[in-house]
Protein backbone atom coordinates (compact mmCIF):
# COMPACT_ATOMS: atom_id res chain seq x y z
CA UNK A 1 0.00 0.00 0.00
CA UNK A 2 1.05 3.54 -0.68
CA UNK A 3 1.16 5.17 2.75
CA UNK A 4 1.16 8.95 2.82
CA UNK A 5 2.11 10.96 5.87
CA UNK A 6 -0.60 13.34 7.02
CA UNK A 7 0.86 14.66 10.28
CA UNK A 8 1.00 13.56 13.90
CA UNK A 9 -1.60 12.33 16.33
CA UNK A 10 -1.25 15.48 18.41
CA UNK A 11 -2.58 17.49 15.45
CA UNK A 12 -6.03 16.07 16.23
CA UNK A 13 -7.80 16.85 19.52
CA UNK A 14 -9.00 13.87 21.55
CA UNK A 15 -12.62 13.05 20.76
CA UNK A 16 -12.21 15.21 17.67
CA UNK A 17 -11.35 15.16 14.00
CA UNK A 18 -9.37 16.96 11.31
CA UNK A 19 -9.77 16.97 7.55
CA UNK A 20 -7.29 15.92 4.89
CA UNK A 21 -7.91 17.42 1.46
CA UNK A 22 -7.50 15.01 -1.45
CA UNK A 23 -8.36 15.19 -5.14
CA UNK A 24 -11.37 12.96 -4.45
CA UNK A 25 -12.71 15.13 -1.66
CA UNK A 26 -12.17 15.52 2.04
CA UNK A 27 -11.17 12.68 4.33
CA UNK A 28 -12.03 13.02 8.01
CA UNK A 29 -9.39 11.66 10.40
CA UNK A 30 -10.70 10.98 13.89
CA UNK A 31 -8.98 10.51 17.25
CA UNK A 32 -11.00 8.87 20.01
CA UNK A 33 -10.72 9.35 23.77
CA UNK A 34 -8.47 6.30 23.83
CA UNK A 35 -6.19 7.56 21.04
CA UNK A 36 -7.53 5.22 18.38
CA UNK A 37 -7.31 6.81 14.93
CA UNK A 38 -9.79 6.25 12.11
CA UNK A 39 -10.24 7.78 8.66
CA UNK A 40 -13.48 7.93 6.70
CA UNK A 41 -14.90 10.00 3.89
CA UNK A 42 -16.11 13.34 5.25
CA UNK A 43 -19.56 12.79 3.82
CA UNK A 44 -22.54 11.42 5.71
CA UNK A 45 -24.43 8.71 3.75
CA UNK A 46 -27.68 10.47 4.66
CA UNK A 47 -27.40 13.99 3.19
CA UNK A 48 -23.69 14.51 2.81
CA UNK A 49 -23.07 16.26 6.13
CA UNK A 50 -19.42 16.87 7.13
CA UNK A 51 -18.86 14.08 9.64
CA UNK A 52 -15.57 15.66 10.76
CA UNK A 53 -17.65 18.34 12.47
CA UNK A 54 -19.66 15.93 14.61
CA UNK A 55 -19.38 14.93 18.25
CA UNK A 56 -17.12 11.89 18.72
CA UNK A 57 -18.17 9.33 21.32
CA UNK A 58 -16.68 5.88 21.69
CA UNK A 59 -15.70 4.78 18.17
CA UNK A 60 -18.60 6.62 16.54
CA UNK A 61 -19.46 10.11 15.37
CA UNK A 62 -22.82 11.86 15.32
CA UNK A 63 -23.37 13.82 12.09
CA UNK A 64 -23.88 17.55 12.79
CA UNK A 65 -26.72 17.90 10.27
CA UNK A 66 -29.32 15.30 11.27
CA UNK A 67 -27.75 13.25 14.08
CA UNK A 68 -27.06 10.03 12.22
CA UNK A 69 -24.52 8.01 14.18
CA UNK A 70 -21.75 6.55 12.01
CA UNK A 71 -19.32 3.85 13.10
CA UNK A 72 -15.75 5.06 12.61
CA UNK A 73 -14.52 1.51 12.21
CA UNK A 74 -16.91 0.19 9.55
CA UNK A 75 -18.31 3.45 8.17
CA UNK A 76 -21.81 2.05 8.62
CA UNK A 77 -24.73 3.94 10.11
CA UNK A 78 -25.63 2.61 13.56
CA UNK A 79 -29.08 2.18 15.06
CA UNK A 80 -32.14 2.20 12.84
CA UNK A 81 -30.54 4.13 9.97
CA UNK A 82 -29.08 2.37 6.94
CA UNK A 83 -26.15 3.53 4.86
CA UNK A 84 -22.38 3.47 4.84
CA UNK A 85 -19.49 5.77 4.15
CA UNK A 86 -16.13 4.65 2.75
CA UNK A 87 -13.38 3.91 5.28
CA UNK A 88 -9.76 4.75 4.46
CA UNK A 89 -6.83 2.66 5.74
CA UNK A 90 -4.91 4.61 8.36
CA UNK A 91 -1.91 3.60 10.40
CA UNK A 92 0.12 5.06 13.19
CA UNK A 93 3.88 4.77 13.60
CA UNK A 94 4.85 6.34 16.88
CA UNK A 95 3.36 9.80 16.72
CA UNK A 96 3.05 9.93 12.92
CA UNK A 97 -0.12 9.15 11.01
CA UNK A 98 -0.40 7.79 7.49
CA UNK A 99 -3.32 7.10 5.18
CA UNK A 100 -3.28 4.79 2.18
CA UNK A 101 -3.83 6.75 -0.99
CA UNK A 102 -4.04 3.69 -3.25
CA UNK A 103 -7.59 3.26 -2.16
CA UNK A 104 -8.23 6.71 -3.53
CA UNK A 105 -6.46 6.12 -6.81
CA UNK A 106 -8.36 2.93 -7.49
CA UNK A 107 -11.61 4.77 -7.00
CA UNK A 108 -10.52 7.62 -9.21
CA UNK A 109 -9.54 5.21 -12.01
Amino acid sequence: MNWISIGTISDIPRRGARCVATPQGKIAVFRTADDEVFAIEDHCPHKGGPLSQGIVHGAAVTCPLHNWVISLETGKALGADEGAVRTIPVKREGERLFIALEALASRAA
Binding site: S5, A21, L101
Partner: peptide, 15 residues
Protein backbone atom coordinates in the same frame (compact mmCIF):
# COMPACT_ATOMS: atom_id res chain seq x y z
CA UNK B 1 -6.34 27.15 15.08
CA UNK B 2 -6.61 23.49 14.20
CA UNK B 3 -10.37 23.85 13.74
CA UNK B 4 -10.05 26.08 10.73
CA UNK B 5 -7.30 24.41 8.74
CA UNK B 6 -7.15 21.06 6.99
CA UNK B 7 -4.66 18.72 8.62
CA UNK B 8 -2.96 18.05 5.27
CA UNK B 9 -3.48 18.14 1.53
CA UNK B 10 -2.39 14.97 -0.19
CA UNK B 11 -2.53 13.28 -3.56
CA UNK B 12 -2.92 16.36 -5.72
CA UNK B 13 0.47 15.91 -7.47
CA UNK B 14 -0.43 12.36 -8.54
CA UNK B 15 -3.73 13.54 -9.88
Amino acid sequence: KHEFRPMASVGFAQA
